[in-house]
Computed example of a mutant assay.
Amino acid sequence: MKTIPTLILSAALAAMAGSALAQAWPAKPVRLVVSQPPGGTMDIVSRQIADQLGKVLGQPVVVDNRPGANGIIATQQVARAPADGYLLMMGTGATHTINPYIYPKVGYDPVKDFTPVANLVSAPNVIAVHSRVPVTGLQALIDAAKTKPGALNYASPGVGGTGQLTMELLKASAGIDITHIPYPGIAASVQDTIAGRTEMVALPPTALLAHFQSGALRPLAVTSPQRTALLPDVPTVAESGFQGFEGVAWFGILGPAELPPEVVNTLQQGLRQVMNMPALRERLASQGLDIIYSEGAAFASYMQKDADRWKEVIRLSGAKVE
């Protein structure tokens, strides 16, 4: 039978061992699950950040692409992983603030099953029209839509993406009736808008810059709270009369629920250092991304606000994926 001093000593040693284990993290490579295939914006951003984070942490951070079901497969994997810090994910609005409301079942709780580590960047959309649409500003577009309810169409890369939901948010905010035409991806939605088969689209600026330069499309407004450096002369939707309007895609690091605080702190320290690197910041800006760094509770609050916004837009629009 152990004496009280022996029990106290055992507990102290166990605590010291646990502390040493946490301080040693990471002792092996860390996997960062990305819910989109290689080559897209999310994948490129994840690799840029993972490369620098690995150098700061002293262990490789390896991007693991797990596309499928609009991010649900990857998100389920991380939700069920051990909370040891060796499997993380690049979460997005799709995985955590849209999918739970647009799919009948996602197989995870976006709040209870995850530890929010840090929000990193956001990507605005640009509301753009075909050059033959005789408007040069967002208010003029809204006036035209009110004149002929239901006559104007907008393209999107599919149901439930920020391209669609941003336009549905505009519909609700402005009290207009425009018709959604979904396409299987960005390329198809842009192609038909350039061809004039739809009047407008809302997509990231990098997807549309060449068409602005050619004159095929005309930018009207940016959906982020601030203007984008890629289109400094294009006002935000908020500047155009809709205060507080925001419709962006965001990328942030999350882990399984109950990540040890020491692991979270180490990750946050590393990410702060990475996101302050001038070269990385310049690369991200050149890709039309805004750094919106926040940690822990502030990140959780941001996600809740984003979820509340999209939940209401989804309810009003009736958007659903079966």
Rank of each mutant, 00 (worst) to 15 (best):
K2Y: 11
K2Q: 12
L7H: 03
L9P: 03
A11V: 04
L13Y: 04
A15I: 15
M16C: 12
Q23T: 07
W25M: 07
V30N: 05
V30F: 05
R31V: 03
P37W: 13
P37R: 12
G39M: 04
M42D: 10
Q48C: 00
A50R: 10
Q52D: 05
K55Q: 13
K55F: 01
V56C: 10
P60M: 11
V62W: 04
V63N: 12
N65S: 14
N65H: 13
N70F: 14
G71E: 08
G71Y: 07
G71P: 00
I73W: 02
V78W: 08
A79S: 15
G85P: 13
L87R: 08
L87V: 11
M89P: 04
G91H: 05
G93A: 11
G93P: 04
T95H: 06
H96G: 14
H96V: 11
T97R: 14
Y101T: 01
Y103A: 09
G107T: 09
Y108R: 01
P110N: 07
V111I: 14
V111S: 05
S122R: 05
S122Y: 01
P124R: 02
N125V: 05
A128R: 00
A128Q: 00
V135F: 12
T136D: 14
Q139N: 11
A140R: 09
A140T: 08
I142H: 03
D143L: 10
A145Q: 10
T147M: 00
K148A: 15
K148I: 13
P149N: 12
N153Q: 15
Y154M: 09
A155V: 13
V159E: 09
G161D: 13
T162V: 15
L165I: 04
T166R: 04
L169K: 04
D177H: 14
I181C: 09
P184N: 07
A187N: 15
A188Y: 02
D192Q: 15
A195R: 10
R197D: 15
T198P: 02
M200Q: 08
V201C: 13
V201F: 06
L203I: 07
P204E: 12
A207T: 02
L209S: 09
H211I: 02
Q213M: 01
Q213T: 13
G215P: 00
L220V: 06
A221T: 07
P225R: 05
T228P: 07
L230I: 02
T236C: 03
G241P: 01
G241L: 06
G244Y: 06
F245G: 07
A249F: 00
W250D: 03
W250H: 01
F251T: 01
F251N: 04
E258P: 02
P261H: 07
V264L: 10
N265T: 14
T266G: 05
Q268E: 15
L271H: 05
M275R: 03
A279K: 03
A279Q: 06
A279G: 00
A285T: 07
D290L: 13
D290F: 10
E295F: 12
G296T: 14
A297D: 15
A298Q: 06
F299R: 03
A300P: 01
Y302M: 09
Y302W: 10
M303S: 03
M303P: 00
Q304L: 08
K305I: 00
W310I: 02
V313M: 13
I314N: 09
S317R: 09
A319C: 05
K320S: 15
E322H: 05
